[in-house]
Design a protein around this nucleic acid. Structure first.
Lengths: 260, 260
DNA sequence: CACTATTTGTCCGTATGTATG
DNA sequence: TCATACATACGGACAAATAGT
């Protein structure tokens, strides 16, 4: 059990639960997958045997085997009879990132480097909390757009859902896929002059998970962005969810900035 | 089915999967729970009936009922015979947050408002990947500190693990709990002049989960901060993990900043 | 007051998935 | 591979509480 104890702490070995909704074999799969994708277990690193997993996690050998089979079907490990399984995957280099400071200076660049697909666009009554934030009255409809962003290789990394008020024309799926939404807002008389953003983490819903090639419940980086025009009116409410392995936010601060 | 279509998009209604590891009733539970916790469904808002959920999501009424029963056992909704179920929960106000711009101007304030407890402090050889980032040679020891931050009510919301080089004196648990680490670094001849931060999401490890009162695998907001001194030397490597319900990052940008 | 439609609560039987030894 | 136990999911049926006519 030497290999096993090098990989997992005693607390982790006791962390599998049968009272929750996720099957044991899938919890084991998730633990090992995280180690491999994060590079803690490098390529060709030896993995625990089914017997070690069975004893260490206190599960049956069949259950341990199912978890390992999932990893093998992902191509993350190699299994052969009589041999200890080993890691077949090597984590990639860098993910796309969006700098937080001087951010919009890079948003244009980002929209050139990546592609957006609009999944749904309609004019509808927003849910009460969104209406309250936007300050629209009870029967005012706003533009609701759901879209996914792909990197240059066509791999999805971000899910967006936005609510936008005060738009009379030009808010079509085609326009949103090809231009920046801020330009369309400006053409409708709303120049964005102030932005507020909140960053947090959340669990992926089944829908977001499917679109971003994650599993439901996996962590996602979330961003809520409020965009205000020159009159201080909230024009646009954007909710983003990012694939954590494919995107992150970066910020640089110099002493002048943060000591000001 | 009026209520149901006000809450879910057609894509969401078709998003439940039986091929994944999460049971249908738990996927439904997750979807509704998110709507309630985020405030989309406000207190006393009418919920879909079991029959509506069954038809809309194309699941059996029993399965819809199980999802609703889970919400009821969480105290999030109220169910009574003959009556449509309704929301019983009202989302709380605000969590502590750290503004990203002008950030260090508020870090001092934050350290007054909150408390830190050092769990572990030692001088040790860093793991290879940390040593590579710091640029230390193979046998150079650095200060390693693990700590948890609590809000004014004594509720934990952040886990920190840091690696710091070039410190000769003053790096004790007491000093770190009472002062800012940047001040101690400055006293050792390393004035921090530049910071780089990466924000992302990850799964809580069992240790972090226990310290932050989460479950292992729950999403956490992560921050990696590299602090450089005036010579461009990386002095401090900090890894933070935040409880997503108790903390978030906020940033404000004005047009002058982001159009520069 | 009864009558009815609505909605949730409970139970049955069956098929499949999960986990054990 | 087998036998066993329990969880998940389905459809159907009926009972019990609620609200409106």
């Amino acid at each position: 059990m030497r290999v096993l104890n090098d990989i997992f702490t005693p607390a982790e070995l006791a962390s599998l639960r049968t009272d929750g909704p996720i099957p044991l074999y899938h919890q084991l799969y998730g633990l090992l997958k995280q180690r491999i994708l994060s590079g803690v277990l490098a390529r060709d690193a030896p993995l625990p045997t089914e017997a070690e997993l069975s004893a260490g996690f206190r599960i049956s050998r069949i259950t341990a085997k199912r978890g390992m089979d999932l990893l093998a079907s992902d191509g993350l490990i190699v299994r052969r009879r009589g041999r200890r399984s080993s890691v077949a995957y090597h984590p990639k280099g860098t993910e796309p990132d969006a700098p937080l400071v001087g951010m919009l200076a890079r948003l244009a660049e980002m929209s050139r480097e990546t592609k957006v697909k609009v999944l749904n666009i309609d004019l509808r009554l927003p849910p009460p909390n969104v209406a309250a934030e936007l300050g629209t009255d009870a029967h005012e409809q706003v533009h609701h757009v759901v879209r996914v962003r792909f990197d240059q290789q066509g791999i999805p990394f971000a899910y967006y859902e936005s609510w936008t008020r005060g738009i009379e024309h030009g808010f079509t799926a085609e326009a949103i896929e090809q231009r920046q939404r801020f330009d369309i807002m400006a053409e409708n008389g709303h120049r964005i002059s102030h932005i507020e953003q909140l960053l947090n983490a959340a669990s992926a819903s089944p829908l977001v998970a499917e679109l971003l090639e994650l599993h439901a419940g996996d962590p996602v980086l979330t961003l809520v962005r409020q965009s205000f025009d020159e009159d201080g009116l909230l024009i646009d409410l954007l909710n983003c969810q990012y694939h954590p392995d494919r995107f992150h936010y970066r910020m640089n601060l110099s002493a002048e900035e943060y000591l000001a």
